[in-house]
Design a protein around this nucleic acid. Structure first.
Length: 315
DNA sequence: CATTTCACCTGGTGGC
DNA sequence: TGCCACCAGGTGAAAT
């Protein structure tokens, strides 16, 4: 379901509502599908931590978590760390992350954090902030009880989504493989496609080249750039590639402003639909007239995905 | 190595 | 109403 603008919208919404919250309790479903490392391990790693920030990286949601306070009820422990100190420390740490103005993209974390919880929504995943008494939607796979009384829930009918807890001492901070489409400059963008024989649409969907572009925004940016989806990536002129880069940036920025595209059931962290589907010019408009030239929009298959374009406007 | 295809899942829609 | 084929925002493993 969600591409860069939808994931950005969700990450911003979750960040605004749970930043600074402590995770008191974690419940996971017994389905193995969405868990990249064992759910018991993830639950143990999450419980007790403070949420410092929620950010998008490619199509991934990165939840940065602070240190755990010492367990009060465990065995007799040394007096090294007292609870008030630990609380004060993590709250102090939360400030620079929270205050750092974060437009789009991937700023490095302001402070090192011990673990990150990575949420990938797959095709049908949702990340929702609710009250505890909100009805549990079918296919709810995770419920995090928070100290403010809210719940953070992960719902995913098809289970293509993934949840992963990363220990930063072992793995380092999560960084998506591909370049950020909103940040990349002209020359590095052109270099991504040089010498490549695959269709430009397939290249746009390849997350190791660019991270965050999916089926909707690939089609919409190619239409706005006037480029046919089956053109060989390596044969596009420098001018065409620059048009594509700017069209892609424009379309993603506008989609973020409108809260993403709700094609069927996408909603943000508050359960609110987006509006960019009203701006789609080719995606899922097969058989309808082009909004520019009235030519009938065609549907073909590229890279195994349904692909929509205007035969007159795109060359 | 680069590229393509397919399986992974559930649910909705439209035809018969 | 039921059954079936087909479609869906993604992605990584297997095949070519």
């Amino acid at each position: 379901m969600p591409e860069l603008p939808e994931v950005e919208t969700i990450a911003r919404g979750v960040h605004a509502r749970v930043r600074g919250d402590r995770i008191l309790d974690v419940w996971f479903s017994s389905k193995p599908q969405p868990f990249k490392n064992p759910p018991a391990l993830q639950a143990k790693g999450l419980e007790g931590r403070t949420i410092l920030a929620v950010q998008r990286n490619g199509k991934h949601i990165v939840v940065s978590l602070g240190d755990k306070p010492p367990q009060p009820s465990s065995k007799v422990s040394g007096p090294e760390v007292r609870l008030p100190h630990a609380v004060a420390k993590s709250q102090r740490l939360a400030v620079p992350v929270a205050k750092a103005s974060r437009p789009e993209g991937r700023p490095p974390h302001a402070v090192p954090v011990p673990v990150e919880w990575i949420v990938h929504l797959g095709m049908t995943g949702r990340l929702l902030v609710t009250t505890p008494d909100a009805p549990i939607a079918p296919h709810t796979h995770a419920r995090l009880t928070l100290s403010s009384g809210k719940e953070l829930r992960f719902v995913d009918p098809r289970r293509f989504g993934r949840l992963e807890l990363r220990d930063l001492a072992k793995t380092g901070s999560f960084v998506a493989a591909g370049a950020e489409p909103l940040q990349i400059e002209s020359e590095p963008f052109a270099a991504l496609f040089r010498g490549r024989k695959l269709a430009i649409k397939a290249a746009l969907l390849n997350q190791t080249l660019l991270s965050g572009v999916g089926n909707i925004y690939a089609d919409e940016s190619l239409f706005r750039a006037g480029i046919r989806p089956r053109r060989q990536a390596g044969r596009l002129s420098r001018e065409e590639l620059e048009r594509l880069r700017l069209a892609l940036r424009e379309v993603l920025q506008n989609a973020i402003r409108l809260g993403g595209s709700s094609v069927s059931d996408y909603v943000d962290a508050n359960g609110v639909r987006g509006f960019f589907q009203l701006e789609h010019r080719v995606y899922q408009r097969t058989g309808e007239p082009c909004l520019v030239c009235k030519t009938t929009i065609k549907r073909i298959t590229v890279a195994g995905r349904s692909t929509h374009y205007c035969p007159h406007c795109q060359h």
